[in-house]
Design a protein around this nucleic acid. Sequence first.
DNA 1: AATCGGCACAACCGCCATGAA
DNA 2: GTTCATGGCGGTTGTGCCGAT
Length: 242
Amino acid sequence: MGRAPCCDKMGLKKGPWTPQEDHILVSFIKKHGHENWRALPKQAGLLRCGKSCRLRWINYLRPDIKRGNFTFEEEEIIIQLHEMLGNRWSAIAAKLPGRTDNEIKNVWHTHLKKRLNQYQTNPGNPKSKNKTKSEPSITSQSSDEVPSSLSCEISSITDTSDHREADNIQAENMVVSWECFLEIDESFWSDNPATPLLNFEPVSDEVGSFSIDRQNVDDDSMEFWYDMLIKAGGEGDFIAHL
DNA sequence: AATCGGCACAACCGCCATGAA
DNA sequence: GTTCATGGCGGTTGTGCCGAT
């Protein structure tokens, strides 16, 4: 009921698009727009179904498509949005101008899922990612010493939640408390191998605190946990107080 | 040089939502 | 209210490329 017949049943072409077909499609859309995808291939003289034309245009031929590799910032945005939105690729794509849901889906399955697994299964290891200006950083006020205590300052809020805070508690151990409206699945805490290092005190899925014993946690793990906090809550810089 | 396996990505498939008739 | 056409979305597949053996 209501479903259009499949392309091959109508004797239409499938498979990779040729440059000639691309040219025909682009020229037609530039001239006439794409008000009716189903009628378009017939009017343009293409032996393709409307669905195929639409996909080709949206994922490849649109003039505002950004070609080339994803930047590190884009990948980080995808990871964060995926945590919030799940596999809603079109919603994620809407936040990344010039990128398509298909492209994001591909990059997720080929790169980012793996990277995320590495973070979670190996939090103590140095991350392979490159540092960028916009990333949170751990800084020590004395250049070559390991900080003995840390405070976390949340300087801004990046999502639409209108109420979120993270407080500083400066002590021997780092203690971070947060309050946000992102759902944090219970399994997140139990599945994470570094959890035993934490003194985790949940009040609810959304509110709680954890402390990290600096004696048992190296800098890379500290950074990992700070990243996790960023993903759950906000953004800012770690500042070490020696 | 040939083969194999993994990766990357374009394209397809099937389902759902929506709106018009 | 029902049926149908269409667009949109997420999952999956097909295929070419490239490095390892």
